[in-house]
Design a binder for these strands. Structure first.
Ligand SMILES: [Mn+2]
Ligand SMILES: [Mn+2]
Ligand SMILES: [Zn+2]
Ligand SMILES: [Zn+2]
Lengths: 141, 141
DNA sequence: GCCAAAACTGCAACTATATTGCAATTCACA
DNA sequence: TGTGAATTGCAATATAGTTGCAGTTTTGGC
């Protein structure tokens, strides 16, 4: 996809979700669109290079995106939160993630899934089920 | 279980895992033994009261316990890590956790489980699978 | 295109969480 | 009981995320 097509796509997504097409939001969304794994604030900032908005702005954009479900936080071993688009997830279930204990790399297992948990006691309402697997990746095993 | 029995139990566990029975390690392990959910460093310190060891010591003990598998870190929404004994978990799978988006309470779903993920690409080696569910607890739904 | 209101941004200060270095203390075990 | 190894406390430091506020950009109506 050309950079210009990518920009258009990002703008369309923002409009559809009723976000303003500010430079910072478009730039950040483009990074999320081309990533094949969840990214930390730090990683996003590195990828965005010189045009990168302020750290605080990055956090605030991510928070806004999360509030409306455009983006998910993924809770992994790393101390820093990671963020990814929600588009590979069903209503109640995110695809599983695999993190290598050795090299630290995280992989999105978009092809795999587990059933939603059953037999929850009365009164529990599931919003989203996340699966995280620790282990060794092909490069490290 | 009386407090003295609990102490004995903690000491036995420590010895079995080749840990020294220091005051701090016994005290901390006792807190983990009586908890029905994963606890943060902050929560552990509050529970331990005046006899509580230094914050740094708490972190270091937890780290040592984790290294040898006595304790697991649980990765939840909260920014602070949470810790629990590994004794409710099988080799490759921890019991699922449910965290209420409203009140923030975390529940150990020791009665439920999901199958281990299948069809992982060649070369991936699973160490541990964690399942985290966000939603509403009975009190909040 | 121009304007006002709303949304967004950057900077500085701040909070929360975890780590490191090092000297002092405690523990296991002979 | 004495000794080396393991553990601990304290102070300093690092890392991750938040808040307040003034200034800028964006949108939507004209
Ligand atoms: Mn993913
Ligand atoms: Mn648990
Ligand atoms: Zn690896
Ligand atoms: Zn609740």
């Amino acid at each position: 996809m050309t950079n210009s097509n990518l920009t258009t796509k990002a703008e369309e997504i923002l409009k559809a979700a009723k976000f303003n097409c500010t430079k910072a939001q478009v730039l950040l969304l483009k990074e999320l669109l081309i990533s094949d794994k969840p990214l930390s604030r730090e990683e996003l900032i590195q990828h965005m290079g010189q045009k990168c908005p302020d750290t605080v702005t990055v956090y605030r954009i991510l928070e806004r995106f999360c509030e409306r479900g455009l983006v998910h936080k993924v809770y992994l071993q790393s101390r820093a939160w990671k963020y990814e688009l929600g588009h590979n997830c069903t209503t109640k279930q995110c695809h599983p993630h695999f993190t290598c204990s050795d090299c630290g790399e995280t992989f999105c297992l978009t092809g795999s899934s587990l059933p939603l948990i059953k037999d929850l006691k009365k009164g529990f309402v599931i919003h989203r089920q996340q699966v995280n697997i620790d282990g060794l990746c092909p490069a490290c095993s």
